[in-house]
Amino acid sequence: MNHPPQTGHPSTRDLTPSIASNVLANATCRTAIQYFSATETDVTDLDELVDYVHEEVATITAPEQARIELVHIHLPKLADYDVIEYDERSEVIRYRSYPQLEAILDLTTQSEGGDEDDG
Rank of each mutant, 00 (worst) to 15 (best):
E102I: 08
I73Y: 06
L107M: 10
V92I: 15
S97G: 07
D82N: 11
D115K: 06
S21K: 12
R94E: 15
R96M: 10
C29S: 13
A79F: 06
Y81G: 00
E88L: 06
Y98V: 02
H72I: 00
Q34W: 08
I19L: 13
D117W: 09
A58L: 11
V53N: 02
N2T: 08
R67S: 06
D82Q: 13
A79S: 14
L78I: 03
V50K: 03
A103S: 14
A32T: 15
I84W: 01
D47Q: 13
E40P: 00
T7S: 06
Y52P: 02
L101I: 05
E40A: 14
D51E: 14
Y98L: 03
D80L: 04
V92T: 15
D47S: 13
V53T: 04
P76Q: 02
E112Q: 15
T61A: 09
N22L: 14
E48M: 07
I19C: 07
E116W: 08
G8Y: 06
L49T: 03
T41L: 04
R30M: 11
S21A: 12
E102P: 01
E88S: 14
E40C: 10
V71I: 12
E112P: 01
P99S: 05
I73T: 14
V43Y: 05
R94N: 08
P76D: 01
P10F: 09
T28W: 02
E85A: 06
R96Q: 14
P17H: 09
A38F: 09
A32D: 04
A103E: 15
T44H: 03
R89G: 11
A27H: 02
S37C: 05
S21I: 04
G8P: 05
T31F: 04
L49H: 05
Q65M: 09
S21W: 10
H72F: 08
T109N: 09
N22E: 15
V43L: 12
R13G: 00
S37D: 11
I33P: 04
Y95R: 04
Y35G: 01
N2H: 11
D115Q: 11
Q100C: 01
Y95K: 00
R96D: 10
E40D: 13
L49M: 09
P10A: 05
I104N: 08
V71P: 01
R96H: 15
